[in-house]
Simulated assay, not measured.
Amino acid sequence: MIFTYNKEHVGDVLMVIVKDSKGGKLAAERRGQAARVFLSETGETVAWNIFAVSELITVKGSGQVTLTDEEVAVLNTVLTNEGFTESLINDAAPKLVVGQITALTPHPNSDHLNICQVKVGTDTSIQIVAGAPNAAVGLKTIVALSGAMLPNGELIFSGSLRGEKSFGMMCSPRELSLPNAPQKRGIIELSDVAVVGDAFDRAKHWQA
């Protein structure tokens, strides 16, 4: 679940993205301070808009933001009061983390993609299909997990590339809008002292 807020360009609206719409036709229903966005064909909810959200909670930051469980409870009260039966589930875990490639095999249906097994926590590994030319076993980098939103607004969801499942993305400096990012292709290369699973910290993990 992605919480995103941009008061300057969108207004005082908290957008809550529940799942990837995959380009499906969308419809919406608004009730008071909340609107549900759903797939026209199935009725499945893909997003919520909470209007005049600053009247309800204090949203800190712009772009992808994190909320406390207490703040999400306030929003759920609004949904209930407006007659919606669904509720929001908070996930405050970091979505940009240090990862390490532990295995890499060529994609069977591509001449430039690799299927990578990437450790993103003490006991957690995920599969990521990547085309970075510098991807290599042992490399530590920054991983955008499913549910991340990049600085350019791109949303990261689990999916597949040419028939192989992929559960995130390994990021280049440009994709994270880092200062003085090199213009060549390739994912971020972190030092060996970077700790797998740590949340991405620009000051800590990037020296321009």
Rank of each mutant, 00 (worst) to 15 (best):
G11R: 08
F157Q: 07
A34T: 08
V65K: 05
V59T: 00
S62A: 10
G168C: 15
A73E: 07
V74S: 01
A27P: 00
Q33M: 13
S87W: 04
G61Q: 01
N152M: 09
K7N: 07
T77N: 10
F38V: 01
A136P: 03
K7I: 14
A135Y: 04
G147R: 15
T80Y: 11
G197I: 09
L176W: 15
F38M: 03
E55I: 00
T122M: 07
I142N: 05
R31D: 00
A130R: 12
E70L: 04
T124L: 06
T45M: 12
E71P: 03
K22M: 12
V196N: 08
H107E: 02
E189K: 07
T68E: 03
L190K: 15
K7W: 04
P108V: 05
E82G: 06
A93K: 12
V137E: 15
G43P: 11
F3M: 04
L96V: 10
L161T: 13
V129P: 05
E175D: 12
A28M: 09
V193M: 03
E44Y: 03
E86D: 13
G121H: 06
F200N: 01
N114G: 05
D20S: 13
G11C: 04
F157V: 10
V46C: 13
W48S: 02
L161Y: 08
A203C: 00
T58V: 08
S172D: 08
M15W: 06
I89F: 01
N76G: 01
R202E: 14
T66D: 14
L145E: 13
T66C: 01
D123T: 15
M169L: 07
L14C: 06
L139E: 01
S54C: 04
H107N: 14
K119M: 12
A148K: 08
R36K: 14
E86C: 00
K25V: 09
P182K: 14
Q64N: 00
D20F: 07
R202V: 06
M15H: 15
P151K: 09
K140R: 14
I142A: 04
I142R: 05
V13Y: 07
P179D: 14
S125L: 05
L113Q: 08
V120W: 02
R202F: 00
N114T: 08
